[in-house]
Design a protein around this nucleic acid. Structure first.
Length: 517
RNA sequence: CGGGGCGUAGCGCAGCCUGGUAGCGCACCUGCCUUGGGCGCAGGGGGUCGGGCGUUCGAAUCGCCCCGCCCCGACCA
């Protein structure tokens, strides 16, 4: 049954106005002309429809699929979850290295808890899912399904903290959260998503600020060094900060269409939740004081950012450090007598270099190449009778598409080299793209001029760097061009102080204005 | 939540206007043959036509209601 809710190429095609007519025949790469009817469907070109391309890559890369029976939710498939597991490992070891411990709090939070911090409840109430009936009875007090856990953690922190000796308290939890979203996109925004949320309590504000910046650095490091995704660290404006925080920091990445993606956030919560949940400690002077808290999180959204940073019209591209399978060896043989020696050599070499052998029967090598290509495997090795005779093996890179015959004796080194080169190459390319699409503006008119045509279809979005005041009224003006102030960078890479393009007041340096996901 | 589009086999679609009990390609299964970028041939399995109600001798097809998904906008990691 076709069933409700398949995100099909046909539907996306119609959405961008092609009516499903003949776009497939017109501007496809030539190899698609005779492969239209293949099981693994073609991928919409980025230049045609970026949103459709993204969806195709997720689906064809077997990363996830819509859970059509649950509104706004998705199934993260084995391929996608494996990437999440690598991310979890990379993040978790850095959390541990900075003395955090993992624990776990309940999914359900008493509704009254949310209401204890005024700004917090106001920020989250539109997106709460609430449990009102359980065990066949209407509950006296409804539970909300956690949209984040500051409140319930505040409650327990109050029980656990008495003295300055209990501080700092450094916690993290890996969890799912639910935020009722009006519009969803796989990985980027779904009703339920996976994340980690760090929660810490400190005896001084300085220490809390230090902590929130430390974890922002951890996020930036994982983004750039592991995911090869360049980011801008900065402060969120008051209008954009987390509901209940004193100050929020973010890392912002630029997708291939020039739109910004908030890839991680870290919050200085001040004493707001301490006061709301009565989290007090006795300091060294014997005085009672409220704790200073932080919270910080990254989610499965990172995977969406990863896809929109590196993937191409052939499908997924995974940076080697994140790829669950770094290389696949495709054995090629024509005659029965070739099969034995080829497979023997294939397994020997694969074992030596840690590659996976695709020895499925009944699939042609060509089909296997396409299969692994769209799943983002960094390197595919090809080994056939010709290579056996010459002592070579063919190494093909996913990022550049280059094919190179390599001496079998040198393959381990060459493979490692190719993977390392791909990792840095992907980062460099993304970084250069970000630079190329970052422009300065010195008046609100210029900002408008730049952003009004800034969509993927019209040549790509931009990061507009402008002097602009951190004032909600100023943020509101950005709505005129469907943009937001993404953040105020921690490090100024431009020209220092200048006059705000809206109010004329002097501000320390330029901020990032962009359209975003 | 407003505007637009769509829902027929696992996937992509035809059939609907002009009602007569469902078809094509790919995928899947079996066998042979092939294998350096999506091989070929032969045979085969698979569908409560998104759901409900109605009109009719008869509904995928006509009418009403509902549900879901995609796209575009307002809110958000």
């Amino acid at each position: 049954m076709r069933g409700p809710g398949k995100w099909t190429p046909r539907q996306t095609r119609q959405a961008w106005g092609g009516g499903g007519l003949s776009h497939s025949g017109l501007c496809m790469p030539h190899w698609r002309l005779h492969t239209e009817l293949m099981a693994e469907s073609p991928i919409t070109a980025r230049s045609q429809d970026f949103a459709a391309w993204y969806q195709d890559v997720v689906l064809q890369g077997d990363m996830a699929e819509p859970a059509e029976i649950v509104k706004g939710c998705m199934v993260i498939k084995a391929n996608g979850y494996a990437v999440w597991e690598v991310l979890q490992r990379e993040l978790d070891q850095r959390f541990k290295a900075t003395n955090h411990q993992n624990l776990y709090f309940p999914l359900l939070i008493p509704e009254s808890f949310l209401k204890k911090e005024a700004e917090h409840v106001e920020g989250f109430s539109p997106e709460l899912a609430v449990v009102t009936v359980a065990g066949g009875k209407t509950l006296e007090e409804p539970y909300v399904i956690r949209p984040t856990s500051e409140t319930i953690i505040g409650h327990f922190f109050a029980k656990w903290i008495q003295s300055w000796r209990d501080l700092p308290l450094l916690c993290n939890q890996w969890a799912n959260v639910v935020r009722w979203e009006l519009r969803t996109r796989m990985f980027l925004r779904t009703t339920e998503f996976l994340w980690q949320e760090g929660h810490t309590a400190h005896s001084t504000h300085e220490e809390a600020v230090e902590e929130s910046l430390r974890m922002l650095d951890v996020y930036a490091e994982v983004s750039e060094d592991v995911m090869a995704m360049p980011v801008i660290k900065g402060v969120k404006t008051r209008a954009e900060k987390f509901a209940g925080a004193l100050r929020s920091y973010s890392i912002e990445a630029m997708m291939q269409n020039g739109l910004a993606l908030q890839a991680g956030t870290s919050h200085d919560l001040g004493q707001n939740f301490g006061k709301a949940f009565d989290v007090k400690f006795q300091n060294k002077e014997g005085q009672l004081d409220y704790v200073w808290q932080t919270s910080w999180g990254v989610s499965t959204r990172l995977i969406g950012g990863l896809i929109m940073t590196h993937s191409d019209d052939k499908g997924l591209v995974l940076p080697p450090k994140l790829a669950p399978v770094k290389s696949v060896l495709v054995p090629i043989y024509r005659k029965e007598e070739e099969k034995g020696p080829v497979l023997e050599a294939a397994h020997r070499i694969a074992k030596e270099v840690g590659a996976k052998v695709d020895d499925r029967e009944g699939q042609s090598p060509g089909a296997k190449f396409f299969h692994w290509e769209r799943r983002g495997v960094p390197v595919v090795l090809e080994l056939g009778p010709r290579d056996l005779a010459s002592g070579k093996i063919v190494l093909k890179r996913r990022d550049t598409g280059t094919k190179e015959p390599v001496d079998q004796t040198a393959i381990a080194g060459k493979l490692a080299e190719a993977l390392a080169d791909m990792q840095t190459g992907l980062f460099t390319r993304a970084k250069e793209r970000m630079k190329a699409n970052t422009v300065l503006a010195n008046s609100i008119g210029e900002v408008e001029e730049i952003l009004k045509n800034a969509t993927a279809e019209k040549g790509g979005g931009k990061f507009v760097m402008a002097h602009i005041k951190d004032d909600p009224a100023v943020d509101a003006r950005m709505k005129e061009f469907k943009a937001t102030i993404r953040n105020i960078p921690l490090v100024d890479e431009f020209d220092g102080p200048g006059k705000c393009i809206v109010t004329g007041e002097t501000v320390p340096h330029r901020a990032v204005i962009a359209k975003s996901y």
